[in-house]
């Protein structure tokens, strides 16, 4: 963030809006958790809201929305790519079971399922 007092005042107005939005989203996500929705839907809702809140903080409080530096953008882009690779770990671990018609999350579950099959 740089520039004149005028610009800073504009920024402050944005901060106030963002602060309000963050508060509202927090309440919404808590209320949504009390709804009786299926777990996958619940997870989706919570993560979408968290992602929105996170983007608001990153874009406005951390001023990423007006970041022009290539060094920072490339570094963060690279980080995001590797972060996604990192988040694939569970998939890589469970990949034994891709295309197999049973869920084998871990050893305990495996024996349970095996027992069911017999």
């Amino acid at each position: 963030m740089s520039g004149s007092a005028e610009e800073v005042r504009k920024h402050i107005a944005t901060y106030k809006k963002v602060a309000g939005a963050l508060g509202v989203f927090t309440i919404v996500t808590v209320l949504a958790s009390y709804l009786n929705v299926p777990i996958p839907l619940g997870i989706t809702i919570a993560l979408v809201i968290a992602l929105t809140k996170g983007s608001l903080v990153a874009s406005f409080f951390m001023h990423l929305s007006e970041e022009r530096s290539k060094a920072i953008i490339w570094t963060l882009g690279l980080t995001v790519v590797f972060w996604f690779v990192l988040m694939l770990l569970p998939l890589f671990t469970m990949s034994d079971h891709i295309g197999v018609h049973k869920t084998l999350p871990n050893a305990n579950a495996a024996t349970e399922h095996a027992e069911e099959a017999h």
């Binding site: 569970p90 999350p105 871990n106």
Partner: peptide, 8 residues
């Protein structure tokens, strides 16, 4: 995530 999806 890994531990959760692997949990009984």
């Amino acid at each position: 995530v890994l531990l959760r999806v692997g949990a009984v």
